[in-house]
Amino acid sequence: MRRLACLIVALVGLPFVSIGIAGPLPEYAMKAAFVYNFTLFTEWPTLPNNTLKICTLESDALKHELEKFRIHQPHGATLLISKISNIEAIKDCQALYLSEEDKQRIPVILSLLENTPVLTITDVPELMGKGVMIGIKTDNKRIVFEVNTLAAKKSNLYLSSKLLSLAKVVY
């Protein structure tokens, strides 16, 4: 079923994953689309080698869904999806997805990323107050998000006002 939905998206051939219109998508597919879309409304100081790398740590499911966006070029850069095994390597990412499985390593990760322009995204509600920049949650069957502008500012990232205007909560 998930495959079929992905196929439909692929078949439509649109560069953008539309949300919630082509029927109810599986949770990860929707989250992947959100993640991708966040990158669109975020500005980095520089994009090294003109690449935009979205990284995951443990969540293979999401990585799999993100792979589908590889054909796009957000901000005109080449989109890279990568799963990080060496924790040090997260500094080279532009966006990092943190899942339930990464909860234990959060303090390390956040300290590593302090003052580094990496957009952090999570779907774990507890992590929001700990310095992750964007939090996704499901609210009444719809996916909503919260934004921590202070964290983003600290990391020298600029989040579009359009994004902020849509956020459920802004810190």
């Binding site: 953008f16 949300i19 919630g20 409304f41 359009k162 994004l163 849509l166």
Partner: peptide, 14 residues
């Protein structure tokens, strides 16, 4: 321009 985010995040209300 202002509608891009709404579309991106399927936010019809905004």
């Amino acid at each position: 321009e202002n509608l891009t985010a709404s579309l991106a995040f399927n936010d019809t209300k905004s």
